[in-house]
Nucleic acid binder design. Structure first.
Lengths: 233, 233
DNA sequence: TAGATTGTTAATCGATTAACAATC
DNA sequence: TAGATTGTTAATCGATTAACAATC
C-alpha cells in the first residue's frame, strides 16, 4: 500500500491550482497521440521544477515508470477525476450581459464536465432572449430551478453592486458553490464555496510587474551580455 | 527612516495578490465616508488575520496610528499607486467575441487606470463593427497600433487554439504584458509578463471543493451542534 | 549494462501567525 | 489613565527544492 492518493486528505491549494495546468497540457499530448510524459517535460512546459511535478503526482492515484514517466491516458484520467471533468456539474449563470453570455457559450466548460442549465437576468428587456440553446429567465425562477435541476454552482456575472444580493439569492436557493466574476468580495455562510475570478486583479498584477521591470531596467544596453553587465562601472 | 516601503524590493506574490482586495474594500469605505480603518476590520472583512494585514501594510509607504488604524484616503492612494490605478495603462483586446467585447466595455477597467485603445478580430464579418466607442480592427493593424498608441498590455480573448499565435503577434509588436483569457499555456520571452486568467480552473477548484465537502459530510444531522457532533457515536 | 527517471526523505526557503513593546 | 492598536521580531507552519536509492 503506497502512501499517496486515496482522495482522502484535502489537496494543498498550490497543488490543486497546478492540476488544471497539467490537465490542459496532458490533453494536448493526448491529441498528438503521445503515450508517455516525464516530469521533466511537464516541468519545462509549465515552468516548474521536476521535484514539484513529482511531488504533485504523488497526490494522485498513479504510478510512473522509470525511464518513461507517466502514461498520458492514465494521467488525463486521474487529473480529470480530481477536477470533476468526468462528473457532471450543473451550473446556472446570473447575468445575461456580454460576460454571462460568453460563459454560457464557452465550449471549454462543456468539455470539462460543466453544464449550464439556465441563465438569468433581472432586466425585462433581456428576459426571454435566446442564448444558444437557453432562454434568459427572470430571477423569480432561480430558486425553483436550482432545486429542481439539481444545480451545484452559480456563476455571478452581474455588476459589482448587485453581486452580494445575487449571492444571497443563490445561497437561499441552496447552491453549493459560487464563481464570482464581479469585482467585489462576497460574504456567504461557510457551507458554500466561493471562488473569485478577479480579472481586474490579474490586470493589476501585470501593471505592477511591467512598471517594476521598467524601473529596474539596467543602464547597460539591452543586448549586453551577463559578463559585460557584471563588469560595468 | 523606517524599514518598509520604497517600492524597491519586489513584493511577494501573495502580498501583491491581496492588495487588489484591500483596494476594493478601501474604496467601499471611502464611498461611505469612513476615515479610518483598523487591521482588525480589514482582516474580518476579507477573512485574514490581523498579523497578515499589518505585515502587508508594512510593504507600503504608510504608517498607521495607534487606536485608530490606517487613514482610508492614504491607504487608497498607496494601494492605487502600487496597482497602477493612478497611471494610465493602455491596452488592446484581441478577439471581439462576447468575452472580448465584455472586457472592452468593462467599467471597472477604466476606474483602475486601464484604457482600452483598440479591439481586434480576424473575422472579416466582425471587422468594422462598433464596440462602445471603438471599431473592431483587422489583425494587420495590430503592430502599428501597439507602437503608435504606446500600448502596454494585450488582452487575449480568442479561442485556445488561436491564443499562441496571437501571443506571438503581440510579442512581435513589442507588448510588455499579456492577460490570457484563453484556456491554454502561453510561451513568451521572459521580457514579457504573462498572467493567465484561468476561469475554467476556478470552476474546477469549486468542483473539487464541493465534492470534497459532500464526501466528508458527517453522518450526524445537518443542524447538529459542534458539541453534539463531537459526542456522536 | 549504463543511464534516465521515479518516489520519497530531508533540507531549504518563504509565508503566516503569535507575541509584545511602543504609543496614542 | 487604561485600553486598543500599531510595527516588528521571533516562532511556526507549509511549500518548494535538492538529493539519492530504487528501478526499469
Amino acid at each position: 500500500m503506497s502512501t499517496n492518493q486515496q482522495d482522502n486528505h484535502r489537496l494543498p491549494g498550490p497543488v490543486l491550482r497546478r492540476f488544471p495546468r497539467y490537465l490542459t497540457h496532458v490533453r494536448e499530448l493526448k491529441k498528438v497521440q503521445q503515450q508517455w510524459v516525464s516530469s521533466r517535460e511537464i516541468a519545462e512546459t509549465l515552468g516548474l521544477t521536476t521535484s514539484t511535478v513529482r511531488q504533485d503526482m504523488s497526490h494522485l492515484d498513479l504510478t510512473g515508470v522509470s525511464k518513461r514517466g507517466y502514461e498520458v491516458n492514465r494521467l488525463e484520467q486521474v487529473l480529470g477525476d480530481t477536477l470533476g471533468a468526468h462528473t457532471e456539474h450543473r451550473n446556472v449563470i446570473i447575468g445575461a450581459g456580454l460576460l454571462g453570455r460568453a460563459l454560457a457559450l464557452h465550449a471549454d466548460f462543456g468539455e470539462h464536465g460543466f453544464k449550464t442549465v439556465a441563465i438569468f437576468d433581472s432586466d425585462p428587456k433581456v428576459i426571454g432572449r435566446k442564448v444558444g440553446p437557453l432562454t434568459v429567465r427572470p430571477m423569480t425562477l432561480l430558486k425553483r430551478m436550482v432545486r429542481d435541476q439539481k444545480v451545484d454552482i452559480g456563476v455571478i456575472a452581474v455588476p459589482a453592486q448587485a453581486a452580494q444580493m445575487v449571492s444571497d439569492q443563490l445561497v437561499a436557493a441552496g447552491i453549493r458553490g459560487i464563481l464570482n466574476l464581479a469585482h467585489t468580495h462576497l460574504h456567504v455562510p461557510k457551507t458554500v464555496v466561493v471562488v473569485e475570478a478577479r480579472i481586474l486583479a490579474r490586470m493589476q498584477e501585470i501593471a505592477y510587474a511591467i512598471r517594476k521591470r521598467r524601473s529596474q531596467q539596467p543602464l547597460t544596453m539591452p543586448a549586453a551580455t551577463p559578463a559585460a553587465s557584471a563588469g560595468a562601472a
